[in-house]
Design a binder for these strands. Sequence first.
DNA 1: AAGTGGTCTAGACCACTGA
DNA 2: CAGTGGTCTAGACCACTTG
Lengths: 238, 238
Amino acid sequence: MKSNNKHVPVYMMISSALREQILNGSLSPGQILPSENELCSIYNTSRETVRKGLIKLEQENLIYSLPRRGYFVSTPHHNKFTLSLPEYLFQSQNSFQDIKIINAEEELQKALQLSPGQKVIAIFCKNYINNKVFGAEIKYTPYQKGIPSIESEIDYAVFQEAANAKAPSFNYYTQLRISAVFPPEEITHLLQCDKKEPLLLLGRLHISQSGKPIGYSKQYLLPSYGELLGVSGYIKNK
Amino acid sequence: MKSNNKHVPVYMMISSALREQILNGSLSPGQILPSENELCSIYNTSRETVRKGLIKLEQENLIYSLPRRGYFVSTPHHNKFTLSLPEYLFQSQNSFQDIKIINAEEELQKALQLSPGQKVIAIFCKNYINNKVFGAEIKYTPYQKGIPSIESEIDYAVFQEAANAKAPSFNYYTQLRISAVFPPEEITHLLQCDKKEPLLLLGRLHISQSGKPIGYSKQYLLPSYGELLGVSGYIKNK
DNA sequence: AAGTGGTCTAGACCACTGA
DNA sequence: CAGTGGTCTAGACCACTTG
């Protein structure tokens, strides 16, 4: 079976048809799908073409295969979300406020896997968007005497977003921790906000592919901006 | 080229080799990859096998293809996270506390796309894990006289997790909103917590594949439990 | 005109599962 | 032992981009 006039590939027709049945429930989670050979007959096409359609659904997490047994409808998980941090967190201007070399508290020591007594550079920034403050951030980097210079650290911290845009990299990934907190003293100063105001705290730990922690940051978001959005489950029309 | 003795498929060897180069930076974001035919020569294999390897990397968001131009290394995004809600949010016991039929405030009206004046059923639950309270939840469902009965609504609300496990479904997806708040009066009662304690608020809107809002819930998490974890970027060894 | 990726075919062998 | 999914091949045609 060649693709039809509308230029819809056969394997797309197969995956669409099966997807429709899964979404409307005529194929239920756990249920087995027709075998590859059966689908070959149904759609009058070759096995590789059928497989392409099935692999597509596999990538969408709608089905999974058990080798030599068959393909089965997945069980949806409604506890995994894709969280997109709002753009302003990345397009923001950062104004450098302060820099300190400090002893890391325990949490930080663990996160950055510091040797005992090793100090960290703490850089304090205010986050602006459209000349309005929406949060403050403290970035921590392990301190190693001389390298790199504090000046370059400041540059990096202040212009990190720009640097990211210029030299994006697969060298590291990021772990995120979200919690609700009262701002610590140093943050209320920066933000000129109430000590007793609930802020969203984003803790980000950057880890290189080799497993080495690169840096840690704590970002406090004011309530008016502090809302994060995510989605879970299958969404049509991707 | 047949697969080698260790039963590593050829297409896996191709994707692994390219992946390694992308992760260690010898292939940079934006850079073009060797063409399919060139890879055929390099690995002495057929085009479909090469394509399988490339498609694998495409699925990992490490590369993308521009038809009739070539394959290119992706630009990593460090603002999209995969957020896994902690298991206790799903394995928890819910104790039914109260049920009311109320007029929806504006936010709720919009979210559930209510007709003017339409009421909603509000169900109040306390969330336990190991006999300890970690949060409280209010579930809202549009109220339509008689159907379904309030009793079944209660059952559904209290045993929703169990119901999910028994009858999981691709029929709907969920939008999530995360913010930091002070608990409203009705929650401080339930949780016996301080009015001035920052809580994580998870707002969840369930939407059917047809686009119709099914239900909305607000879950307040106590600080000791209220931490959400996510990751972004490419992570080796998946 | 040569090269590219996208789609498709009709075979093949393998290791394993389940009746 | 028949059927399954996993891998692989050596072709083919297409629509399009690039030099």
